[in-house]
Structures are given as C-alpha cells and as structure tokens.
Simulated assay, not measured.
Amino acid sequence: MILFGTLINGLLIIIGSIFGLFFTKIPERYKETVMQGIGLAVVLIGLQMAFVTEQIIILLLSLLSGAIIGEIIRLEEGLNRLGQWIGSKFTSSGSEFSVAQGFITATLIFCIGALAIIGALDSGIRGDHEVLITKGVIDGFAALVLTTTLGFGVILSVIPVVLYQGAIALLATQIEKWIPESFLNGMIVELTAVGGLLIVAIGLNLLKITQIRIGNLLPAIATVGCIYYIYQLIIH
C-alpha cells in the first residue's frame, strides 16, 4: 500500500496531539519555559538542515523569489484566515488565533524537511515505509510537546501532512520516468536547506526574537526546484 507510511505518520501525530491536550492546563510560566526550549531545539534542527546546501546562491534566490511571491499574494494572511476558519469549527469564539498559530507552526515543522520528502519518495518508488514510520514517531513526540503550548491547532496539521506526503508518494510512482535520479537528489538537498532556514525562522518566532512572516516565505519551497533546474542548465 503506497500510502501506508503516510497514514501511520498522520495517526502518530494525532495520538501525540491527543496526549498533549491533557497537559495544556499547566501554569503559564511552565509553558513559557517549555516553549523557549522548543524554540531552541527548532533553531538547531533548522540550522542542521540549512547547512547541507551545496550552492548558497540557489538558497538565496529561492528565498528572495519566494518572499516576493508570498508578499504579492499575501499568503501569510490567507493561511491565518484558513487556520482561524478551521479553529472556529472546533473551538469557542476568541481562541481561533492560537489555533491558527498551532496549525501553521506544526504544519511547517512536520512537512518541511528531508524525512518528509525522502520518506514519501521511498514509499512511492520502492514501497519502503520505514523512513515515514520513523518520522511519524518523531512527529508524534513533537506534536505532544507542541500541543501543550500551542493547543488544539497542532492536531489539525495532520491534514496537510497527509495530503503533502501522500501526493509525493503517489507522484513518485511515476517520477523516475520524468526526472533523473542525480537531479532529484541534488534538488532534495537544496530543498532541505531552504526548508531548514524556514524552520530556523519558526524557532526565532517561538523565542519571540523576531516576528518573521514565515507564510510569505513558503513559495520558496516551490521556486527552489525551478531555480535549481536553471542553475543546472547554466553550469552544464
């Protein structure tokens, strides 16, 4: 079953989030300190991912083009409205913003990175779900911790996670016919690096050091593929 790994990943996020809901009533000062710890860990994870880049110019151009596109279409505002709308269906009035924050933050953390992409590709190309199941265990624990501070919105991230990874897995069944393996591997490296910097931005926001409009940088995840392709044409 091509989607087995993706479904297990989603299930573990749900389980982790449900357990996390039982710990949301802890005192605010505990939540604040825990969130700072999460923020520091997220920054470290993002830096580790960002440092894998082999061409810094690709990373820079991807972020710049993504930022321009995101600002033009006001993607951050749209994501916030989506999170608030979803939150209004599950929570009482007045708490939608925190739901949107939890939804966006968790979605970015769970979707961006090498494990999500490589795991989904392994599921589709080789029928090997080990990477996604391992990612699911990690995501489950992360969802538990995030839910204690960001609340119910974290569990809603399972929807884009399943759709995103599922789409990659289904596409991967045909991808070898279209894209050479060497090109695909190189693009994944740069995609991981761009995603890593976005995760660093999440960590900085969680630490309240900055207030980066991460949603408006998301198109960089798409533009990195185009820029990497153009770069390969130039150097070859």
Rank of each mutant, 00 (worst) to 15 (best):
I13L: 14
G78Y: 00
T105V: 15
E54P: 00
V145T: 08
K208L: 07
Q165W: 12
I168E: 10
E176I: 05
Q101I: 02
I202N: 08
G10H: 02
F4N: 05
G195F: 00
I155D: 04
R29N: 11
H129C: 03
Q55L: 08
L163M: 15
A222I: 15
F90H: 13
I38W: 02
A100P: 04
Q174N: 07
A67Q: 00
L60Y: 09
I138P: 01
S17Y: 09
V42P: 10
I125P: 05
V189D: 01
G113M: 06
L156W: 06
V224G: 03
E130S: 12
F110Q: 02
Q48Y: 09
A41H: 04
I69D: 07
S88I: 05
E71C: 01
I155V: 14
L191R: 04
T24G: 06
D122L: 15
G195Q: 03
A120W: 10
I13Y: 08
I26F: 03
G87M: 03
S62K: 08
V131L: 11
I14P: 08
L163H: 13
I2G: 09
Q48F: 14
V43R: 10
L204K: 05
L207H: 09
R29P: 00
A67P: 00
S123D: 14
D128K: 04
G5I: 06
H236V: 13
E176K: 11
G186Q: 13
S17H: 10
I221A: 13
S65T: 15
L115D: 01
A172C: 09
L144Y: 13
V99F: 12
V34K: 02
L218H: 06
L82A: 06
M35A: 13
L198F: 13
A169C: 10
N80I: 01
Y228G: 03
F51G: 13
L12A: 09
L59S: 10
S62M: 14
V154N: 07
M1N: 10
A106Y: 00
K177T: 12
S98I: 12
A167W: 07
G119M: 01
V161P: 07
F23I: 06
L64D: 04
T223C: 10
T53I: 08
L108C: 10
L146K: 06
G153I: 00
G20C: 05
G87P: 10
V161H: 03
L121C: 00
V52L: 09
S182M: 08
T223I: 08
I133T: 10
L121I: 02
A106G: 06
I14A: 12
S17C: 13
A220S: 12
I13D: 04
I214V: 15
T173N: 03
T33Y: 07
F22Q: 08
G140E: 04
T210D: 09
G196Y: 02
L217H: 01
S98Q: 15
L115H: 05
V131Q: 08
P219H: 04
D122M: 14
V189I: 12
L132Q: 02
L170S: 11
L217S: 02
D139Y: 10
N80F: 06
I26S: 00
N216V: 05
Y228A: 12
M187Y: 11
C111S: 14
G166A: 14
G46Q: 08
T149H: 00
F103W: 02
V162F: 11
G113I: 04
N9F: 15
N80V: 06
V145A: 08
I125F: 08
V42M: 11
T107D: 14
L204N: 08
S123Y: 12
I14E: 10
G5W: 05
L171G: 09
I8K: 02
V161R: 05
